[in-house]
Structure formats: structure tokens, C-alpha cells
């Protein structure tokens, strides 16, 4: 099994899907000869040509809207939004069009497409190159929201997303693009959209996370293990539709739950996870559900100390785990 970075796995997933199905094409800003600003599509223009790797005009709603049209026609677009921060001009198209196409047409039409967007902070991106946008989209029935945390899942989930008959928002933790490395199976495989994954078994508490926060949670779990705390780590992977059974099962086992995301606290995805636990595992709880999230300020500040203050990290997560374990 070759080891590769998160972004290499994403690129390989796209490459294989482009090779498998000639309905698949990529569009977005700078995705062509430049290979994307993060190089996610590097080499694909040379391999598949300008008809399938299409530099779009600098206009996000049209990247998604044109993708929807192509999808209803029978193509399988992969639409890249350069930074998740710039997805909002396309919000209307995602919410009112892509996600509603199937239901609103009584199942006659569907918009099978992938919308990829690098998201998240910790990269010196300031307010407008650091945003976590998942909470807005995890509220939309008809859309699927996927966030991989490691190369193996990223490739397998992306391939599933391309083949899914529904619109899938595929959010990529950009800080992890080159930081997170891992082994990727050789040959053809997919990872199903939907199921969460217990990435570390534990007995004392469960921490739920996704994306780079999941990567940090594993590090934090290793830290607290040295102090005798056994933390279970669950990688949610798919935020919508959410794997309720996996959440409930883990809480039943450990009795304590914590959710970590870098998106700000209020109205964040952690509230949904907490509500699921309150609904379905209340009697199993030995402590209040804890949320470790970004602060409620309008974005990740640029300057390094302020950015560090904003972002959860393994140390902050380990501290919160210890508090929860001691409850």
C-alpha cells in the first residue's frame, strides 16, 4: 500500500473516476493548466484535455449552476469551489436547485454532482480563506455533506460521491492537504457515504469529530492515554445524512460525549450531535455533552497568536478530554 498525502489521494480519486466514466468532468477556477490553487487537479488537464478539465469563469454560482444543468443532462460534474469561503454566491444554487431537484420533481430529475471545496483554518488565511461552512449545508435535505479526515477515506469517499445520484458537498480540510499522510489501498475501492467510523476504541469517553479536527483528536487521545484515560474517537465522515446509530452506540458504551469542530460554536454541527445524544442516549450519559469549538467571532483572525487562539488543537482537545473524564 502506497503512502500519500490527503491531496494526492483526492487527485487520484478524481483521476480514476475521470478514467472510468467519460461523463465525469471537472470545472472550477484555475483547475486547468495550473492544476488548481492547491494543485488538487494537477496533471489532469494534460491527461484529459480542455474539454473535460474546464477553467470556469470567476463566478461561483455559475460553477454550481452550470454543473446542475450538466448533471440533469446526464453528465457527472465535479465542481471545484476554490475556497469554501467563496461558496456563498452559489448557496442559492445548492440549496434551491441542486438539493431540491429530486424532491421537487417528484423524483423525475436529479442532480448527481460533486461540489468540492477546501475549508478550514490554521493556514494563515484570515477571515476569508479559513471558513468552516459545514453547518450551513448540513441543514439541507437532499444534499449530502462529506468531510474526509485521511487519505484512504478521502479517495474512497470521493469516488462514492462521483457515483452518487445526488449532489454531494465534499469539504476538504485544507490544512490537512499535505500534513495528513496515510496508506491508501492499491486497486479499486470505495468508502460508502453515510457510515461513521470508530477510528480508536476507548472506554471512558467518546469524542466525535471530522476533517482535521479528527486528526487532532487522535493525537489528543494518545496524549491522554498516557494519563490513563481511554478515549474513543469517532470520525463522522458524513455529516448529512448523519450516522445516528454510530453516535448512539458509542455513547451507550462510554457514557460521556464530546464534539470537536473548528467552526464556531453557536448553531454549529456539534449542536446537532448533542441533540441526537440527548434524544436517543440520554439515559446512558454520565456527564453533560461537551462541545469544543471555534469561538463565536466572525472568522479566523490572521495574525498567528490570534489564529492559534481560535483553532482547537491537540493540547486544547486533550485538556477538554481530561475535564470530561474527571466529571
Amino acid at each position: 500500500m502506497p503512502e500519500m498525502t490527503l491531496i494526492e489521494a483526492i487527485r487520484q480519486g478524481m483521476d480514476e473516476e475521470l478514467a472510468r466514466d467519460d461523463c465525469v468532468f471537472i470545472t472550477g477556477e484555475d483547475v486547468g493548466p495550473r492544476g488548481g490553487v492547491f494543485r488538487a487537479t494537477q496533471g489532469l488537464f494534460e491527461k484529459y484535455g480542455p474539454k473535460r478539465i474546464i477553467d470556469s469563469p470567476l463566478a461561483e454560482l455559475s460553477i454550481v449552476g452550470v454543473g446542475i444543468g450538466a448533471a440533469v443532462y446526464g453528465m457527472r460534474p465535479i465542481c471545484e469551489i476554490q475556497f469554501a469561503d467563496f461558496i456563498f454566491p452559489a448557496f442559492n444554487q445548492i440549496l434551491n436547485e441542486a438539493a431540491r431537484m429530486f424532491y421537487r420533481s417528484g423524483g423525475e430529475w436529479a442532480a448527481p454532482m460533486v461540489i468540492r471545496a477546501p475549508y478550514g483554518g490554521g493556514v494563515g488565511g484570515g477571515l476569508y480563506h479559513s471558513q468552516s461552512v459545514e453547518a450551513f449545508f448540513a441543514h439541507i435535505p437532499g444534499l449530502k455533506v462529506v468531510i474526509p479526515s485521511n487519505p484512504k477515506d478521502a479517495k474512497g469517499l470521493l469516488k462514492s460521491a462521483v457515483r452518487d445520484p445526488n449532489p454531494v458537498l465534499f469539504l476538504e480540510p485544507k490544512k490537512g492537504y499535505r500534513l495528513i499522510k496515510g496508506f491508501v489501498p492499491e486497486g479499486e475501492y470505495t468508502v460508502p457515504i453515510g457510515p461513521a467510523h470508530v477510528s480508536r476504541e476507548g472506554a471512558d469517553l467518546t469524542v466525535f469529530a471530522y476533517g482535521i479536527m479528527h486528526y487532532y483528536c487522535l493525537q489528543a487521545a494518545a496524549l491522554v492515554a498516557k494519563e490513563g484515560i481511554s478515549a474513543e474517537v469517532v470520525d463522522l465522515r458524513t455529516l448529512l445524512p448523519v450516522d445516528k446509530a454510530a453516535i448512539v452506540a458509542s455513547v451507550r458504551k462510554t457514557g460521556k460525549a464530546m464534539i470537536v469542530h473548528e467552526d464556531n460554536l453557536t448553531g454549529g454541527y456539534g449542536g446537532e450531535v448533542a441533540a441526537i445524544i440527548a434524544d436517543e442516549a440520554f439515559a446512558d450519559l454520565d456527564a453533560p455533552v461537551k462541545r469544543l469549538c471555534g469561538p463565536d467571532v466572525p472568522g479566523v483572525p490572521f495574525s498567528h497568536p490570534m489564529q492559534d487562539w481560535f483553532m482547537p488543537n491537540p493540547e486544547k482537545i486533550a485538556k477538554a478530554m481530561k475535564e470530561l473524564a474527571a466529571y
Binding site: L61, S62, V64, G65, V66, G67, I68, G69, A70, A71, V72, Y73, G74, M75, P77, N92, Q93, N96, E97, R100, R104
Partner: peptide
Amino acid sequence: SAPVATQIPHAAGIGLG
């Protein structure tokens, strides 16, 4: 749908296809 003009990029996407 109801939000006006949302159909225009769809038509372009169909044309692209």
C-alpha cells in the same frame, strides 16, 4: 423553481453537456 433566473445557468450546463 421559484427564485427567478436560477434556470439560466442550468440551460448553459445542458448546452455544455
